[in-house]
Simulated assay, not measured.
Amino acid sequence: MSGRKHIAIILAAVVAAALLASSVTGFLLSRHYSRIQYEMLDTISGQVLDREPEAEESLMAVLKEYADKDTDHAGEKPVLASWGYRASDFSGISSGRLAVCAAAGLLPGIGLWLGTFWYRNRKEALRIRMLAEYLEQVQAGKAGLLPERREDEFSKLEDEIYKTVTCLYQTKEAAVQAKDYFAENLSNIAHQIKTPVTAISLSLQTMEQEGEDGQTERIRKQLFRLSHLEESLLLLARLDAGTLALKKEEVDVFTLLSLAADNLDEMLQESGTAIDIPEQGEMAVTVDLDWTMEAVINLMKNCLEYNPGGTIHCLYEQNPLYTQIQIRDDGKGFAKEDIPHLFQRFYRGKHAAEGGIGIGLSLAKEIIERQNGTIRAGNRPEGGACFEIRFYKN
């Protein structure tokens, strides 16, 4: 049933009820005034006969003619008006009682209209609340089928919501399947890499024992690169599959940054790069120390590659909403066209260092975002690249 038909039926019901009430009220008022008229004529006739008994025959004739309505009284001179009387003097009802009678007819009509309006609004409110609760269940992942109801003006909206939710569930399931498939492929690739890496490692050891030093250093570098690729792919597979367990514990930000810098001590000394981590008071974040430290190490490595021989600055601050960590350098910064793609897997920027595989920043992003955090990268106005991490409290 369409909304217009529904409204038309309600209005028809209200009009019908009003007409019925008017008919009943008119009938009852007609009987009431007929009774008043009869009693008034009876009283007047009795008083006239008491004073003039010989006028009985004349009075009866007049009453008979009036009752039979054989006489046209339209042209007769109004006697009562000439004597100064009005119709209200013989009605027997005061103006107050007339107002009460009018109110008695008006108030039920108003009440009926208000009741109908309230019922319709209440019904709409219940339907809206039901649809809102259904959407809340969808958001929480607990939605089922919508209860069957009679058609009304919300039926089309309800159908469209259900279609949209069904489509979203199908899209979500397809995305989860694709993600699981991708994670499985990454894992398989990593395990396939593991076999030749092991074989190369054994061959390298044999070559070193036999004194063949000509190509061993180059092989060692490539072997290290393959091993790092294998570990990164396995980590990506665990992140995509949701099997990477992240502990939650309060970690001091200064300690986190210091431990990350300690792990890069050898690389920093070789490149002549320094890391500045000022103490800015006790500030804690609720994260997994080991994996968050891994993410920070990747960010520091990136700054080191883009600014060898310079200084990496680490700053941090806290407010009621989040804890912010900045890791930045004094180098040339990122190429403008690289910035939108920095956190994409296997993306290598224009000035990326040789030997990288383009996974470090994407891993850092995954680890941080899985701990109620955000990360973004950009160039500072005064020069140099900057990573900004925010860990939100709620």
Results as ranks from 00 to 15, higher is better:
L246N: 12
K247A: 15
E249Y: 05
V251Q: 15
D252A: 15
D252L: 15
F254L: 13
T255Y: 14
T255K: 15
L256I: 04
L257R: 03
L257I: 05
S258C: 07
S258I: 07
A260L: 07
D262S: 10
D262R: 11
D265P: 03
E266D: 09
M267L: 09
L268F: 07
L268G: 06
L268V: 06
E270Y: 03
S271R: 08
G272L: 08
A274K: 13
I275N: 01
I275M: 06
D276V: 04
D276Y: 08
D276W: 06
I277V: 13
P278W: 14
P278S: 10
P278R: 08
E279F: 10
Q280S: 12
G281I: 05
G281M: 05
E282N: 06
A284M: 09
V285W: 02
V285I: 12
V287A: 01
V287H: 07
V287L: 03
D290V: 02
W291I: 06
W291C: 02
M293A: 08
E294C: 11
E294P: 01
A295R: 02
A295Q: 02
V296W: 05
N298P: 00
L299D: 01
L299M: 08
C303F: 02
C303Q: 11
E305P: 00
E305F: 09
N307Y: 10
N307D: 14
G309V: 11
G310Q: 03
G310C: 03
I312S: 11
H313P: 01
C314R: 10
Y316T: 10
E317H: 13
Q318M: 09
P320T: 07
P320I: 10
T323Y: 14
Q324V: 07
Q324E: 15
Q324I: 04
I325D: 11
Q326G: 04
Q326F: 09
R328N: 11
R328H: 11
R328G: 10
R328S: 15
R328K: 13
D329K: 04
D329Q: 08
D330L: 05
G331C: 02
G331L: 06
G333Q: 04
G333K: 03
G333N: 02
F334I: 02
F334C: 00
F334N: 01
A335K: 02
D338M: 00
I339E: 00
P340T: 00
H341W: 10
L342N: 00
